[in-house]
Design a protein around this nucleic acid. Structure first.
Length: 103
DNA sequence: GGTCTGACAGCGT
DNA sequence: CACGCTGCCAGAC
C-alpha cells in the first residue's frame, strides 16, 4: 500500500514522546528520504492534524528552534512547557533529548 | 505536463 | 561566531 511522505511524517511525529524533540533531517530519514528535510518542513507548514502532529517538537539539526506556522515564539513557549530549555532561540542539550527513531 | 516554492542542511567566507 | 550561497525533494500552481 502506497503511503505518502506526509502520512509517514505524521506517523513518525506521533511516536515522539513528550519532552523529546527531533530534527527535520532525522524525520526525513526515518520516512525513507534522507534528503527530503525541506519537504518535511513544507508538510508541517500546511499540516492539518495539529493535535496529532506535535510539529513544535521538530527543530533544526543545529539545535535552533526553527520556524512555526503559528510563530516561532509560540513554538519556543510550547517546548519550554514540555520541559525543554531554550536559550537564544536554541535548544540546550537538544542532542540529549533527540528522538532518532532508533531502536 | 513543467515550473516554482519552502517551518532545511552543509559548507564556504 | 554570524551570515550567505548552494543543493535537494515532494507538494502546490
Amino acid at each position: 500500500m502506497m503511503v505518502s511522505f506526509q502520512e509517514k511524517i505524521y506517523l513518525l511525529l506521533g511516536q515522539i514522546p513528550n519532552g523529546r524533540v527531533s530534527t527535520y533531517k532525522i524525520l526525513a530519514k526515518a520516512a525513507g528520504r534522507p534528503r527530503a528535510w525541506r519537504v518535511v518542513g513544507g508538510i508541517l507548514n500546511k499540516n492539518k492534524n495539529l493535535v496529532k502532529t506535535p510539529c513544535h517538537r521538530i527543530i533544526k539539526s543545529d539545535g535552533s528552534v526553527g520556524g512555526y506556522a503559528r510563530g516561532a515564539r509560540k513554538k519556543e513557549n510550547l517546548l519550554t512547557k514540555e520541559g525543554i530549555k531554550i536559550k537564544s532561540g536554541k535548544v540546550i542539550d537538544f542532542t540529549k533529548i533527540l528522538y532518532k527513531f532508533y531502536k
